[in-house]
């Protein structure tokens, strides 16, 4: 007999793996892993501010992560530093500011370990509903803008020359990512949100011949990681979030050994 809390954890994890698949592929294709970090790390500040203002944490996370995603998008547009430097500065500054604010704000008590590492095993039925609804919004938005997202990934100039809107593309991508951060924070923790995005996608990359196949393979690998990680957590009493990522990393190592199937 499977424990109900384990069933809930599996359901929530599978939903997150599914939502993460198209976003994770876009992050990998666009070489924007640090962007995921910056947005994810901003979540801690969101939690702290939400608690001090007595609003639900998800509202705080959603606002701060969106603000961060937009700020980073427009800060990396031009400047003296390379994009990865700017993103690295934002990502780590956001985490540090969040830790400081969480410590000094009066009346704010944050379980840091839970916020940083997540706690998928205590997910509630209503939280699963929120994840499902939010995920539906993300997937529908990405599906609607998919051709534009692929074109902007291939070449922003090419997309603009063909009459596409880069601003729309940026808004779709950054806001979807911010919503994803808000939905997945509770499950995998803010330190490992980027891992949930990029590990399954990176593991799927050697196996796929088309963008959509890669998204499907990513969803599959993400799902296997979630179930494998929960099983590992149950058997070894290891923390669930990190266990999921460990399984994903193992799959990444395996698919990396895959003989290149691409040919003419």
């Amino acid at each position: 007999m499977i424990e109900p809390f384990l069933l809930k954890a599996a359901l929530a994890g599978l939903l997150i793996a599914l939502i993460a698949a198209p976003l994770g592929c876009l992050v990998v294709w666009r070489r924007m892993a640090y962007f995921g970090d910056a947005t994810g790390h901003a979540a801690l500040l969101g939690v702290a501010l939400a608690l001090s203002l007595s609003v639900p944490p998800i509202i705080g996370v959603l606002s701060i992560a969106s603000a961060m995603a937009l700020a980073v998008t427009f800060a990396t547009r031009r400047g003296v530093f390379a994009a990865d430097t700017v993103l690295g500065v934002f990502a780590h500054a956001a985490l540090a500011i969040g830790l400081v604010v969480a410590a000094v704000l009066p009346g704010v008590r944050i379980n840091l370990i839970e916020t940083l590492l997540g706690d998928i095993l205590t997910v509630s039925g209503s939280e699963i509903m929120v994840i499902a609804l939010g995920g539906l919004v993300i997937l529908a938005t990405l599906a609607y803008g998919w051709r534009g997202l692929l074109n902007a990934t291939l070449s922003p100039e090419l997309m603009a020359a063909e009459g596409g809107s880069l601003t729309r593309d940026k808004l779709i991508f950054t806001l979807s990512l911010a919503v994803f951060v808000a939905l997945s924070m509770k499950l995998v923790g803010i330190l490992l949100i980027t891992a949930m995005l990029i590990l399954p996608a990176a593991a799927a990359a050697p196996l796929a011949r088309s963008p959509e196949r890669m998204v499907m393979m990513t969803a599959l690998i993400g799902s296997v990681s979630v179930l494998g990680g929960l099983w590992m957590s149950w058997e070894m009493d290891s923390p669930a979030g990190p266990s999921i990522i460990v399984v994903a990393a193992a799959i990444f190592a395996l698919t990396g050994l895959w003989p290149k199937t691409r040919n003419r």
Binding site: R31, S155, E157, S210, R213
Partner: peptide, 20 residues
């Protein structure tokens, strides 16, 4: 407008057939 970029900077990462 028809436009050809110098190269596709991300072509190493995104799997895509020519026809697509």
């Amino acid at each position: 407008l028809g436009y050809t970029p110098q190269k596709l900077p991300l072509e190493q990462l995104i799997p895509m057939q020519v026809d697509r």
